[in-house]
Computed example of a mutant assay.
Amino acid sequence: MWQLIISGSLFENVFVSLKRSAAGFALALLVAIPLGLVIGWFKKFERFIDPLLQIFRQTSALALFPVFILVFGIGETSKIAIIFWGVQWPILISTIEGVKNVDPILIKSARSMGASQFTIFRKVILPSAFPSIITGIRLSATSAILVLIAAEMMGASSGLGYLLYDTQVKYQIPKMYAAIITMSLIGIIVNYTIVAFENRVTKWK
């Protein structure tokens, strides 16, 4: 690991992987959270779209990787797309469940005090669903790195997945373990960063 650090190879590959993961993860947040809020709030829409969601959710991201390469090419877009597909589902499902499991008494109380639908959504639904959304984000954050590593092992010339595959093929076992340990450390850091954010934002719990 020290040899990889002083050569700059480790940081270079980590930066490339984190950039790809962040792009796919951010895209998943922008799509999955609003969509989950809408699906959870409108029950008729949920009944209509749920079968389609379940079909898509059961389709492995890695199984679709050749399709993404066919559509987007071998470059960065296909890797970001596969991360987006793989990580959006825990966020989406957790958001839907968070909205559906809001205490009905809170909603009835807000309505009895004359709150509008928008006010109920903003003041009751969102805060109540937030812990569940954060749980989905935690699951997805670590999945983003794992999905990317697998994608980089199949089609990349840089990144931690490429470093892992390259050292394995060249039988550079110490460097291979260094890459594995680095992945684990990144996962731990990301997880506890989100936990710290959750504890700070949801002190009211």
Rank of each mutant, 00 (worst) to 15 (best):
residue 2 W to F: 15
residue 3 Q to I: 13
residue 4 L to W: 10
residue 9 S to Y: 11
residue 14 V to P: 02
residue 16 V to L: 10
residue 19 K to S: 15
residue 19 K to P: 10
residue 21 S to E: 10
residue 24 G to A: 03
residue 25 F to I: 01
residue 27 L to H: 09
residue 27 L to S: 11
residue 28 A to K: 02
residue 29 L to W: 05
residue 29 L to A: 04
residue 31 V to N: 06
residue 32 A to C: 02
residue 33 I to N: 01
residue 33 I to T: 04
residue 35 L to K: 08
residue 37 L to N: 01
residue 38 V to H: 02
residue 38 V to T: 08
residue 40 G to L: 09
residue 40 G to D: 06
residue 41 W to S: 14
residue 43 K to F: 14
residue 47 R to W: 06
residue 47 R to I: 06
residue 47 R to A: 05
residue 48 F to W: 14
residue 50 D to C: 11
residue 50 D to T: 13
residue 51 P to A: 01
residue 51 P to E: 00
residue 51 P to M: 01
residue 52 L to A: 13
residue 52 L to V: 13
residue 53 L to I: 10
residue 53 L to M: 04
residue 54 Q to K: 08
residue 54 Q to F: 02
residue 56 F to T: 08
residue 57 R to T: 06
residue 58 Q to C: 14
residue 58 Q to R: 12
residue 59 T to K: 05
residue 60 S to H: 10
residue 65 F to G: 06
residue 66 P to Q: 07
residue 71 V to Q: 06
residue 73 G to K: 06
residue 75 G to K: 13
residue 77 T to H: 05
residue 78 S to T: 04
residue 79 K to P: 00
residue 79 K to G: 00
residue 81 A to L: 05
residue 82 I to G: 03
residue 83 I to M: 00
residue 84 F to W: 01
residue 84 F to N: 00
residue 85 W to E: 01
residue 85 W to A: 03
residue 85 W to D: 00
residue 87 V to L: 01
residue 90 P to Y: 09
residue 90 P to L: 09
residue 97 E to M: 12
residue 102 V to T: 11
residue 103 D to A: 05
residue 106 L to I: 02
residue 107 I to V: 15
residue 107 I to L: 13
residue 108 K to T: 12
residue 109 S to D: 07
residue 109 S to W: 10
residue 110 A to C: 08
residue 110 A to E: 06
residue 112 S to N: 11
residue 113 M to C: 06
residue 114 G to V: 13
residue 115 A to Q: 07
residue 117 Q to G: 13
residue 118 F to N: 10
residue 119 T to K: 14
residue 119 T to Y: 09
residue 120 I to L: 04
residue 122 R to H: 05
residue 123 K to F: 11
residue 123 K to E: 12
residue 130 F to R: 11
residue 130 F to H: 07
residue 131 P to H: 06
residue 132 S to Q: 09
residue 133 I to M: 10
residue 136 G to F: 01
residue 136 G to R: 02
residue 137 I to H: 00
residue 137 I to E: 00
residue 138 R to W: 07
residue 139 L to E: 03
residue 146 L to C: 11
residue 148 L to D: 00
residue 149 I to E: 08
residue 150 A to L: 11
residue 150 A to D: 04
residue 152 E to T: 05
residue 153 M to R: 12
residue 155 G to R: 08
residue 156 A to W: 00
residue 158 S to G: 08
residue 159 G to H: 12
residue 159 G to W: 12
residue 159 G to F: 12
residue 159 G to R: 13
residue 160 L to I: 09
residue 160 L to C: 01
residue 164 L to S: 07
residue 165 Y to C: 11
residue 166 D to G: 04
residue 166 D to Y: 14
residue 167 T to A: 09
residue 168 Q to L: 12
residue 169 V to F: 14
residue 169 V to S: 13
residue 170 K to L: 15
residue 170 K to Q: 15
residue 171 Y to V: 14
residue 175 K to C: 12
residue 175 K to A: 15
residue 175 K to W: 15
residue 177 Y to G: 05
residue 179 A to H: 07
residue 179 A to E: 03
residue 180 I to P: 01
residue 180 I to W: 03
residue 181 I to M: 11
residue 182 T to A: 13
residue 183 M to C: 15
residue 184 S to F: 14
residue 185 L to F: 14
residue 185 L to M: 12
residue 186 I to S: 09
residue 187 G to R: 07
residue 187 G to Y: 04
residue 190 V to T: 03
residue 190 V to S: 01
residue 191 N to I: 02
residue 192 Y to W: 11
residue 194 I to R: 03
residue 195 V to S: 08
residue 196 A to H: 10
residue 196 A to D: 05
residue 202 T to A: 13
residue 204 W to D: 00
residue 205 K to V: 09
residue 205 K to H: 09
